[in-house]
Amino acid sequence: MSEKQSKFHGLLFLFFFITGMILSVWVVLRNGWWLPELASDRETIDKIFVTIFIIAGILFILSELSLSFFVLKYSGDPNRRAFYLPGNTKKEILWSILPGTLVVIILEISAEFLGGASLWGRIYGEVPKDAFLVEITGEQFAWNVRYPGPDGKFGKTDPKLISTDNPLGIDISDEAAKDDIVFPAGQGILYLPLNRPVVFLIRSKDVIHSPYLPNFRVKQDAVPGMTTRTWFVPKKEGEFELACAELCGLGHYRMKLPVVVEPAEKVEEWLREQTPAADLYY
């Protein structure tokens, strides 16, 4: 080391991280930038998120501050020599492996044992029997919505039957199709019953879309050629937004579907007022 190194950089690192952390906390609290208000039964996601947030936050602060502190404290001095520490001995090797192991254990615990795995299994497992079914089909750049009607079954569809009159290609000769209630893309909003399991059957007519309901912690890609599924229980009344989360083209940023959660009876009543497919597609 031929010349003494300035303390400036270490100080700037420390100053930057400390003020940055304080400022971010202040700005975030002031503006309330956080997860959107929870409106479904998926509170486990929030719980895991917050747990990891705290652990990662502590690790972030510790490691950035020690990095900054090291830069300040150990800035070069010609009269000093670095501490020779090659890390070859068994003990040192153990030391180098220990923190990584700890990190992994902490993360595994928070991710898997706070209910993450069981929630995952629940979302993709059996669907409750009395669930409220709704099919949403993405197309550039709007959502078709279909309810199964009183029989609780969706009628067959066939892409060959798709036309402006029949955007989903419903095969009206199928008994189950006659009472289906269809809202062609962009022409209907999504009504969901409060406190009742809702099953989304998700499809796409053209490219990959992804219905995303930030308040419900729900996101599941709509893949053309197959039907994907997810389910949840709406827990709050009111109007929410469904956005598209998978790039689907130039209108991706406004492929919106308003979602209204109302008491179950009200939704049932509203459904009864709608025109069934049999009266529309002759």
């Binding site: 197309e139 750049f141 709007a142 406004r254």
Partner: peptide
């Protein structure tokens, strides 16, 4: 109009 699929 793909944004408003009814437009033709």
């Amino acid at each position: 109009c793909d944004v408003h699929p009814w437009m033709s």
